[in-house]
Design a protein around this nucleic acid. Structure first.
Lengths: 242, 242
DNA sequence: GAGTGGTCTAGACCACACA
DNA sequence: GTGTGGTCTAGACCACTCC
């Protein structure tokens, strides 16, 4: 996986951008990069297009490829990138330690809505998992999720107290690579205020989503309520390929 | 633009998917499609990858290409799609009429921050445009934007009281095709409460972004404060090419 | 083994920016 | 005109799934 050519180029370029190794916020032209890395121009283009989709660079036909001046400017403590999926990996890792407090772990019949969202049959069961996520003892997110037992029949309280995605990937070879997400804001409820240490006037950010495995199987329906200071969703939108 | 090969294939495939012309939620294999359309397999792959990025199809190596059964309309009243850019076009049009109340329209020197974000020189000026957006007399968004005068020297109070993007596209042939957006939630300020008819405990959604023209030129820096009920940002995230 | 998507190459030609 | 990114082709070989 990591030995793909375009990925190696991608990572190297990303490093060099982050280390500020390009003058004038500008990258070398594609043909030079092709020669420099000893790969075809197509592979360079592929790496560059990933960076462009992530909003890290943008390309001007006829002029060159430039670093987005907004990149790295958004340095809030936490953020959820449009190009990240798992929560555990979404933190600015810095010096703080993420942890999880398990609030509920049970098995319930799938509602009709869940049946539709997770491709289940009537009578199928799901795990009902409610977790509080903290960062150095500061709670920032209440996360309620539903996962079909037939997809992950061996889940345990211990596992869900850690990273479910990491468990799946490392132990089961199942990789979560896609999600539909919906983001909203809302006043905090009493429970939000209690669990997240919020004042009544302080709101929460809502992120609802369905996560999919590699092969397109819907894997989890999740409802997340975030302390408002800890929601920053960055996304780069392009209509180029509509 | 519309005569690009991969776009023609893309639109044709999208139509055929929406008209349910593929059996078993499955598309023909890439080599057959290549032959069918009389184009190279690379062009087919490009069209398919756009559809995959939009969450419409997913590909299973070794098996084939399948239609995402979850592909369907999201039917909340307002929403801002990860694949929409302009505000005016982001409403479910229904029976309600969007309107704009101009709160401020002036020209000011670009701050250092704006100079960097909009690629300006010291001494350059920007329009400072503050607008209140309504939907059938119900205000839902305060929008504050900065646009370099040298990009749109002919802006007028009349124009900015309507859709700036539409004006640019129809009158100037400049198309906004990219944006870098950051979404957050925050308690409402006194001004928010007054302009958006919010109670003190009701929050706002923040959307900050830079909009880019077709050619990569940064065109507008915008700060939007939305009535919390009117922010729903939907997005499809894929890690395939991280 | 046959079929399918994934990666990569080498090169042609086009469209646009800038001097 | 030169340089840059954009599109497209034809074909090779790899990796995975399913029979």
């Amino acid at each position: 996986m990591a030995d793909l050519i375009y990925r190696k180029v991608l990572h190297d370029l990303k490093d060099r951008i982050q280390n500020d190794q390009f003058k004038n916020q500008r990258l070398p032209d594609e043909r030079s990069l092709s020669e420099h890395y000893g790969v075809s121009r197509s592979s360079i283009k592929r790496a560059l297009s990933v960076l462009a989709n992530q909003g890290i660079i943008f390309k001007k036909r006829g002029s060159g490829t430039f670093i987005n001046p907004l990149y790295r400017k958004n340095d809030s403590i936490f953020h959820y990138e449009g190009s990240n999926l798992g929560i555990t990996d979404s933190f600015k890792s810095d010096n703080q330690t993420p942890s999880i407090k398990l609030l509920n772990f049970s098995v319930v019949p799938a509602t009709e809505e869940l049946q539709q969202e997770l491709f289940l049959e009537p009578g199928d069961f799901v795990y009902d998992i409610k977790r509080l996520r903290l960062f150095d003892d500061q709670p920032f997110m209440i996360e309620q999720g539903y996962i079909p037992i037939k997809i992950a029949p061996e889940l345990s309280a211990k596992i869900v107290s850690e990273s479910i995605f990491n468990y799946l990937e490392e132990q089961q070879g199942k990789v979560v690579t896609k999600s539909f997400m919906s983001i909203q804001a809302a006043p905090s409820t009493d429970e939000d205020q209690k669990l997240l240490n919020l004042k009544p006037i302080e709101p929460v950010g809502l992120m609802e989503g369905i996560f999919f495995l590699d092969d397109g199987t819907p894997f989890e329906v999740s409802n997340m309520r975030l302390h408002y200071k800890y929601l920053q969703y960055n996304t780069f939108v392009s209509l180029d390929e509509e």
